[in-house]
Design a protein around this nucleic acid. Structure first.
Length: 442
RNA sequence: UCCCCGGUAGCUCAGCUGGUUAGAGCGGGUGGCUGUUAACCACUAGGUCGGGGGUUCGAAUCCCUCCCGGGGAGCCA
């Protein structure tokens, strides 16, 4: 018997097992806010209706004690949720002593130190339910479109996107290994075996970033498909994000409402999304006088017109997105600012066939993807240009040696997507146990 | 790595232009109340004012330094 099914049992006597979320005492009445993970319901203990011992137990029970409640379900407009339990019997399984998180305000440091308890609060539980919904929607969409889930390794021998952001560890007698920062290279090999694949798992970046958009451990889904071009992968990314948002609206409306999310804005997330090339985006930034902070060699800060060739930072992306009410894909970035494996645009060798999807409402970058370089010599050249150890990439070059085909893929960050859809400000609330620059516990 | 902000009761904060025994609300405890929604009322316990050093007759308050946290930049999903 769970709280979520309570409305089916009006007039009946039920037994609920769970925790005391809140208690109010009022003379001969005790109100208990009871939660069991599926929902919250109010239990009323009225002294004349129960034994002396039961009333005393209810009166003295503490927040987050585990309890068994037996009583009659009734509709009651004064109760939060519309239903309440008229208690006949009340048993304490375990009395919680000095539960630290009260219904009042707390600071982020305190809450994060108690993350193992913080997740019991209704707001955190709602966010984690939406997260589960986002993950379910992703698998639903990809499985339904013929993509095979194929997991990439987490322990890897080399870098994927450069060596500055890797967590390093010792791997027996074989030297250093690293925690994966992307499953993409393996996804490419899997796509050559299975056609359309996706990897889904945790990834790790040893970036020293301290913002509300960064975690050192985050989850990413990375679809990769043989014979897909940049255009194909952009269409698919739009399809998938539309599906995720509409799925969550359908299945987690209650949680989104509880979180205070503006649902009308999410309803608008329908294809087609906006699209512009990097070059068009630069023109827009210049026309709208969005400048770039630059440091001169003598350390002075100056403002300059946004130069073609520079990568966008968060301030530029935010300025660009203010005009849009749904996501926008920016494509064809300068080759210099992007990863070595991205294919050059045959129509403009200065740019690569890459794309980022930016979410509106300060959602930021949620997707990064590209068409991959499929020519053996060109790829080898890029690896050398980026000063990467060729021997580590021999297997990856093999993919261009034995039946190379055009292929594309992208990575979608789960936490950033959950952050955007729920509207929570900080990414630390979108994963059960966040890993950040200065925080690894609990 | 760099820039900005902060650290006072279990929690959230006030006090900080130096001056007696350091305050409030919440939470805890005790008592009161049959409808509370973060209840209310009364009483009560609770503090090396982040650590170290310095200035001073006197430091929570000023200075130095270290530690911890928050926000942002860069980098990225």
């Amino acid at each position: 018997m769970w709280v979520e099914h309570l409305s089916r049992y009006v007039g009946e006597t039920v037994t609920l097992r769970g925790w005391v979320y809140h208690r109010t005492r009022k003379g001969k009445l005790v109100f208990l806010r009871f939660r069991d993970g599926t929902g919250i319901c109010q239990c009323v203990v009225f002294k004349p209706n129960v034994s002396e011992e039961v009333f005393e137990r209810a009166r003295s029970v503490t927040q987050e004690s585990s309890v068994v409640v037996t009583g009659t379900v009734r509709e009651e407009s004064r109760a939060p949720g519309g239903y309440e339990i008229d208690v006949q019997d009340f048993e304490i399984l375990h009395l919680a002593v000095d539960y630290p998180i009260t219904p009042k305000e707390h600071g982020p440091d305190f809450l994060l130190k108690h993350r193992h308890l913080w997740i019991r609060s209704p707001r955190q539980a709602a966010i984690l339910r939406v997260r589960a919904g986002v993950e379910r929607a992703i698998r639903d969409f990809l499985d339904g479109n013929g993509f095979i889930e194929a997991d990439a390794p987490i322990l890897t021998p080399s870098a994927c996107e450069g060596t500055s952001t890797l967590f390093e560890l010792e791997y027996f007698d074989l030297g250093n290994a690293y925690l994966s920062q992307s499953g993409q290279l393996y996804a490419e090999a899997l796509a050559m075996a299975l056609g359309k694949v996706y990897t889904f798992g945790p990834t790790f970046r040893a970036e020293r970033s301290k913002t509300r958009r960064h975690l050192t451990e985050f989850w990413m889904v990375e679809p990769e498909a043989a014979f897909f071009t940049l255009e194909d992968i952009m269409d698919m990314a739009e399809d998938m994000v539309e599906y995720i948002v509409q799925y969550v609206l359908r299945h987690h409306r209650r949680e989104l409402e509880f979180l205070g999310r503006n649902l009308e804005k999410l309803e608008k997330v329908r294809r087609p999304f906006y699209r512009m090339s990097y070059t068009e985006a630069v023109e827009w930034l210049r026309q709208h006088d969005v400048k770039l902070h630059r440091k001169t060699p003598d350390g002075k800060e100056i403002l300059v017109d946004f130069p073609w060739g520079e990568d966008f930072g968060a301030p530029q992306e935010e300025a660009l997105m203010e005009q849009f009410d749904k996501p926008c894909i920016v494509h064809r970035y300068p080759a210099e600012v992007k990863a070595f494996y991205m294919k050059r645009d045959p129509e403009d060798p200065r740019v690569v066939l890459a794309m980022d999807m930016l979410a509106p409402e300060k959602g930021g970058e949620i997707i990064g993807g590209s068409q991959r370089e499929d020519d053996y010599e060109a790829l080898k050249q890029r690896i050398l240009e980026h000063n990467l150890p060729l021997e580590d990439f021999q297997w990856y070059l093999d993919l261009r040696k034995y039946g190379s085909v055009p292929h594309s893929g992208f990575g979608l960050g789960i936490e950033r997507t959950v952050r955007w859809i729920t509207g929570v400000e900080h990414i630390r609330e979108t994963i059960p146990f966040p890993r950040m620059l200065y925080r690894i516990e609990p």
